[in-house]
Write a protein that binds this DNA or RNA. Structure first.
Length: 502
RNA sequence: GGUCCAUUCGUCUAGGGGUUAGGACGUCAGGUUUUCAUCCUGGUAACAGGGGUUCGAUUCCCCUAUGGACUGCCA
């Protein structure tokens, strides 16, 4: 049984890189009939952020990523919050002490900071490793008596991993293939902090083992800790799960991995849903008007591809075709334009009725009275022209309200000397029109234009101007039908008056 | 600095010892729409560089360059 986990730390909102990691885990699990687990990694109490845990669960739910086990869902492998698993880690830390895979280090953070800055001043980097540990305050370098004394005085200490010397570790990544490390280059990572809580490294190995995780799918930033993790499994005598390290998501412009503030600077959201930090509000895809399906579709194709030319995938379709061996190795820059295109694709797939339901919310906010208007028909008519539902207003306002101003350029271009006269004639025709359907009105008007040999543009352009106030919008006669005879005539008269008064 | 990872059109990517190096977004041009948008057609544009291996490398190997990640009692 495939079991994967998404293991965020609740230090703030989840950005799209994290969402993609969750998505790939989810797709992989579902593709293989496995389980998807949410584990909250909150071993760092100093970075706790109120509301982050709820944010993570809620935003993933919006995305359509569901968990089989987690703090909300429950499950047989809990608790699913690391801060609720302290005793478990203590137990496993003891095993490492007993088999001498770790040692006690009494160096204070201040002492280590000092060593780091001293090294930096010399253009070097301080590393706590097999070399330097011989001269530091730890149970390896100190005598038994000294250690006993430090313990007697209740000197705080951490547990560090005793990295083996000069050992070649050959590892396999499901995406990248073989990766080799020499332990010589690795440092002695802290596994248990002075507060008694484990660091990520220990907690993650213990939990993945206990939760019977079969595949660890995580961001590329974890690749450098892979050898440590593998060595930890060996120290426990456990079999390691399979690993897959996903390529990073880069900023759209410039270099570097996408970060929290890039959105505001570059004008697109970085988070699935809005996040209010108390001081600042970060935009979300949901609030900007993106459909979750479009957002997920875009994310799925960032770093993965199906090997075919299909681009539009529902979540179910993604589950059917997803595989890790089609995940790329190089980081991908995020493209906001393409994300909009995806949204457009999903928007035009929706029916007029569906769109109308959502459009109503926007009309209500604007206090627009739309009763009597065929909203579904209007949405259907205009959906090709927009990327977002909220943009529908900009394309349809003239249905609900008469133009208050006229586009200067279009007025100049379309309103000629005889326009007033032609519009007056047009009013006559509309008045006499019995069947007021788009098609019938068009018939009548065309018959007149043709028989009078006027030329379509000379009538249609001012006509559109009168109805819309600008040179845009759908078929003129559709507008006429929808707003009705009286309103159409009123608008034409208004335009004539406007020009007369000029 | 050190370790590790990566490198195909502007961007996301397909491909893989012999291809006109394919698609999508963007962009540009034409056509349709007597408006605008859509849509259609077409164009633009890429194998980072240098060495090998080979009859032949964009593809395999090495080096260089560039970019990135990591280098915390963070995850």
């Amino acid at each position: 049984m495939v079991r994967v986990r998404f293991a965020p730390s609740p230090t703030g909102p989840l950005h799209i890189g994290g969402v993609r990691t969750a998505l790939f885990n989810y797709l992989f699990a579902k593709r293989n009939g496995g389980k998807m687990i949410l584990r909250i990694e909150d071993t760092d109490q100093t970075r706790f952020v109120e509301g982050a845990e709820e944010y993570i669960m809620e935003s993933l739910e919006w995305c359509g990523i569901k968990f089989d086990e987690g703090i909300k869902e429950g499950g047989n492998y809990g608790p699913y919050r690391q801060s609720d698993r302290r005793e478990i880690y203590n137990k496993y830390a003891k095993i490492l002490i007993e088999n001498q895979s770790v040692y006690m280090a009494f160096d204070s953070p201040e002492e280590l900071d000092k060593l780091r800055s001293e090294a930096e001043a010399k253009g070097e980097t301080f590393v706590y490793n097999h070399e330097s540990r011989k001269n530091l305050k730890n149970s390896l370098a100190l005598s038994k008596e000294q250690v006993a004394e430090l313990l007697e005085n209740k000197t705080p200490y951490v547990l560090r991993f005793k990295m083996p010397e000069n050992q070649l570790v050959e590892l396999y990544d499901e995406i990248r293939g073989e990766i080799k490390f020499n332990t010589q280059e690795l440092d002695d990572k802290v596994l248990v902090k002075t507060d008694g809580l484990p660091t990520y490294h220990l907690a993650n190995i213990v939990d993945d083992h206990l939760m019977e995780i079969t595949h660890v799918i995580r961001g590329e930033e974890w690749l450098p800790s892979l050898p440590l993790h593998d060595l930890l499994y060996r120290a426990f005598g456990w079999t390691a799960p399979k690993f897959a390290h996903l390529p990073l998501i880069l900023k759209p412009s410039g270099k570097g991995k996408l970060s929290k503030r890039d959105g505001d600077q570059l004008g697109f959201p970085v988070f699935p849903t809005q996040w209010d930090s108390g001081e600042e509000i970060f935009k979300g895809y949901r609030e900007e008007g993106y459909f979750p399906e479009a957002f997920i579709n875009m994310l799925a194709l960032l770093g993965w591809n199906p090997g075919t030319e299909q681009e539009i995938f529902s979540m179910d379709e993604l589950i059917q075709v997803f595989s890790l061996d089609r995940v790329g190795k190089s980081g991908s820059r995020f493209d906001p334009d393409k994300t909009k295109w995806f949204n457009h694709q999903y928007l035009i797939k929706k029916s007029g009725e569906e769109l109308a339901e959502e459009f109503k919310v926007i009309l209500d906010e604007k206090n627009i009275n739309y009763s009597g208007f065929p909203l579904a028909r209007i949405c259907e008519m205009l959906k090709e022209r927009v990327n977002f539902i909220h943009e529908l207003w900009e394309e349809s306002y003239f249905f609900f309200q008469a133009p208050e101003t006229y586009d200067e350029k279009f007025l100049k271009k379309s309103y000629k000397e005889d326009s007033t006269q032609l519009l007056q004639k047009l009013i006559e025709i509309l008045k006499n029109q019995q069947n007021f359907s788009s098609e019938e009105i068009e018939n009548s008007v065309k018959t007149w234009i043709e028989s009078a040999e006027i030329g379509f543009g000379r009538v249609m352009s001012p006509f559109r101007l009168a109805l819309v106030g600008a040179g845009k919008g759908p078929h003129v006669f559709d507008i006429v039908e929808i707003i009705g005879k009286d309103e159409s005539i009123r608008r034409i008269s208004a335009l004539i008056e406007f020009v007369d008064g000029k």
